[in-house]
Design a protein around this nucleic acid. Sequence first.
DNA 1: TTAACATATGAATAGATGTACATATGTTTA
DNA 2: TAAACATATGTACATCTATTCATATGTTAA
Lengths: 133, 133
Amino acid sequence: MDNINNPHCDRQSECGNIELCESCVYHTDVIEHAKGNMPDDEVLYDLAEIFRVFGDTTRIKILWLLFSDEMCVCDMAELLNMNQSAISHQLRLLRNARLVRSRRDGKQVFYSLDDEHVREIFDKGLAHIQERR
Amino acid sequence: MDNINNPHCDRQSECGNIELCESCVYHTDVIEHAKGNMPDDEVLYDLAEIFRVFGDTTRIKILWLLFSDEMCVCDMAELLNMNQSAISHQLRLLRNARLVRSRRDGKQVFYSLDDEHVREIFDKGLAHIQERR
DNA sequence: TTAACATATGAATAGATGTACATATGTTTA
DNA sequence: TAAACATATGTACATCTATTCATATGTTAA
């Protein structure tokens, strides 16, 4: 790995932080490699957004419930001992992220997992936390 | 699926919300099945926590950078055009979640992915957002 | 139609979170 | 030793988020 002490940073024009560019030691090969392969900001934003939706205990519990069966809002609220409104708000986030879908049956609305990715993402997360115990 | 209109809820003693219990239509078989298989709250909390760490654009970018190579804090700050302090704070969260590890080499600290789960979780998330396009 | 019910949603609020600034810690070099 | 540097961390603050309350929407049954 090149270790270049670089007081005259050749990427200075692209860099908002002049102080940093004038003082920092760069590994330019590593930087160039990473820069070349960086996905679009939009993709990385969407990716973070999906995980953000997984990143809440209430929503994780809802997803868990839906692994067993489709389920109506009322049953989820009962099982999680939470306000119906709170559940509905969280279901909207899950719906927008296409992690769950809904079907109406009379007065009730039944939710189920939208696709198998949900279970796969869930399981990979579980594998991680279980390994580190 | 049983659909029991149940004004005298038999789980009323366990239920904090009396109004809900007196009015709601339950699917008791679904509820009992889900209740029996529910993991510990602690596991579900830890799981949400892991995804919460993935659920930020800056941290997602950092993880992406580490797929290519190990990398020092300075290079990450340069590449992401961000404050060194901001990167360090995020690295601490990633370290605490055991998603990255660090090694010191002189004045610099190099970060790398802690295990393969990180890449797998990342890829599953990517598969989800790419499929829905 | 009206009443009762299940769900959705807007507004408000308390708490969580990401970043910047200042500064501390740890390492190397002079 | 002191100075320079890379990183870590405490604090403050602006923004975001989860929940609650009140209420709207949509469905069924009387």
